[in-house]
């Protein structure tokens, strides 16, 4: 009994730094957001902040539109990331050790750079006059492209910034896949294509799920990318929240919007979980 208590205390002690870290950096900010969302400027509890978001029809519609386009951009970016990342991760997992190391470097280097800098570089590349892309196209006698300050640029920025978060989990799952499973399938008469469809893809679902989550969640809440690459035409929910805090110095309104966004993200994560569980169910059924 005493022993057990001592053990318990020791594990508490060992976990203390982690616990402290979580409280300071995760729980406390969340609490702050919630507190601000349910208070007004004078500091008394109220639901008015939420109500005011939807009072007049125009601002409600506007908000709905912004939410919808944020969701749509995030979904598009996630889908593109998945389509690019899976083949690349597959190739990496099957390449030689040296190639794997080098590719890993290439993929992670952009993650070390500040993403503001990356985004500014994209402005330089995409800008209509003197942009690298159009200079190159002109050299090749191809028509000029207007990408900057269009939705394309926003999605491109998202894909560029979040692609590594899709590649890495898929690569991890694929490189841990037992080679003997693939061999067993070939042995039983599966062609390369059948092995991919019946063995590799189903077994890499967990990596895909975590990649999708890691790209979708930051994409849906991103700001700055849309502001800088999308011009002012394509405001997303993240930009709106930022504007509330900075331009309008309306902390309560910003907090309320953040809370709504958070609930949405949580719901979509639950949905994803459900989806992967259903997949497991599908294996059993047939």
């Amino acid at each position: 009994m005493k022993n057990l208590q001592a053990k318990h205390r020791r594990s508490l002690l060992l976990n203390a730094p982690h616990l402290l870290w979580s409280i300071i950096f995760i729980v406390a900010p969340l609490l702050m957001v919630a507190i601000y969302a349910f208070r007004d400027r004078s500091g008394s509890w109220t639901l008015d902040t939420f109500r005011s978001l939807f009072t007049d029809k125009e601002s409600a519609l506007n908000l709905l539109f912004i939410f919808r386009s944020s969701l749509w951009y995030a979904l598009l970016a996630t889908a593109i990331c998945l389509l690019l990342a899976y083949p690349l991760a597959y190739f990496m997992a099957h390449a030689g050790k040296r190639v794997q190391r080098n590719l890993m470097m290439l993929i992670t280097v952009p993650m070390w750079m500040n993403f503001l800098i990356c985004t500014y570089s994209w402005i330089a590349i995409l800008s209509e006059r003197g942009g690298l892309l159009n200079l190159l196209l002109a050299r090749l006698h191809l028509p000029e492209q207007t990408i900057l300050y269009t939705p394309k640029a926003v999605v491109l920025g998202m894909v560029y910034n979040y692609l590594p978060f899709m590649i890495l989990p898929i690569y991890t799952v694929l490189s841990k896949l037992q080679p003997s499973l693939v061999e067993a399938a070939q042995d039983l008469g599966a062609t390369r294509w059948q092995v991919l469809r019946k063995i590799t893809l189903p077994l890499s679902v967990p990596g895909v799920i975590s990649g999708v989550t890691m790209v979708f969640v930051p994409s849906v809440s991103t700001f700055y990318i849309s502001k800088k690459l999308g011009g002012n035409k394509n405001q997303l929910i993240g930009d709106l929240i930022e504007a509330k805090f900075t331009t309008f110095s309306d902390r309560n309104g910003g907090a309320a919007l953040s809370l709504i966004l958070m609930v949405m993200v949580l719901l979509s994560m639950v949905f994803m979980r459900r989806l992967s569980k259903d997949d497991d169910g599908a294996y059993v059924a047939g």
């Binding site: 037992q178 003997s180 061999e183 067993a184 399938a185 070939q186 042995d187 063995i199 077994l203 059993v284």
Partner: peptide, 21 residues
């Protein structure tokens, strides 16, 4: 290629497919 051979293998660690019953 292996999938065209009339030869089958019982692997050292069985290699059963974990996602199938």
């Amino acid at each position: 290629p292996p999938y065209k051979r009339q030869v089958n293998t019982i692997f050292q660690r069985y290699a059963l497919f974990p996602h199938l019953n």
